[in-house]
Amino acid sequence: MATATAQRRPAAPPGRLARRGGRRGGRGRSAALAGYLFVLPVAACFAVFVAYPFLRSMYLSLTRWSGFGDPEFIGLDNFDHLMSDPVFWDALWTTLFFTLACTVLQTVVPLLLAVLLNRGWRFGVVFRTVIFVPAVVSFVVTGSLWQMVYDPNFGLLNRFLDDLGLGSLAHPWLADPSTVLPALVLVSLWQAAGLYMLIFLAGLQGIDPALYEAARIDGASPARQFRHVTVPMLRNVIAVVVLLNVVNGFKTFDVIYVMTGGGPNRASEVLGTYLYGLAFGSSAGAVPSFGYATAISMIVFVLCLVATLVQVRVNRRARDVF
């Protein structure tokens, strides 16, 4: 949210000037009226399906409520309870670990792939298309497919290891608490790499070839060109990719819900699956606790907010340096 504020700021003065000009006559007023009318439907949607639910979430996080009768206001008791809830802390750490691993892998791998692909190859378009295809596949399909890939007895992965003579490495990947998270991170990478690679490719197209020309004349090796031309020129794109990764990591739900349901024994429980289970059954097995679950959702929101604000801060400082 603040991203947009920071980036739009330079555009503000011309906008203000134009507005002042517009206010002079009736035309300006009719344009302004049209502006409000054109924006009204979106604003209404926003109010009903985003703003109101969000505000209600804030309120519900301060209540105890099973969905029947009226919510009972209990102040900060839910958050107090969170502090001593071991499942919450485990889910928080799992979320942070998952987010960190995904962010690092899903930034570095796509960036290197994009740089490689951008050097021009016969069949480059085919490579690009194939690597991107997993990104259009839904989380449910991805999760179900990889469940079969990881199947302990007949899964693609264990049979592949067997064929390589590495049968001893065969493993119940999703059933072992120590391998389930890396296995899920790999699925995430498989699906996300193509999208971020395309974003980086689009960014690379925008770099002036003359910069590389100059670097080469100065005798810079490809590695130095990468470090001193590509990375600085892609700074904003990298920032966007990192932010998208972090936010997507914090709000992870679908793949884990489909593949493990947070198991085995909560080893892959993240905040998203924990709060969903509390509100809509399964994991608690008891009455829904909407109040407690929304309190956790507020924690997810705060994590995303902090990530956004940090990104804006870092981005602005980086801009000052360069």
Binding site: R8, G35, F46, Y52, S57, L60, K251, S297
Partner: peptide
């Protein structure tokens, strides 16, 4: 051009960063 354009725009856009798991219950 209309009054409050930037504020309205940024407010609407802020929902991009709102995690769906935070509003699915309400």
């Amino acid at each position: 051009e209309f009054r409050g354009k930037q504020v309205i725009y940024v407010t609407l856009l802020s929902s991009i960063m709102l995690p769906v798991t935070a509003i699915v219950i309400p």
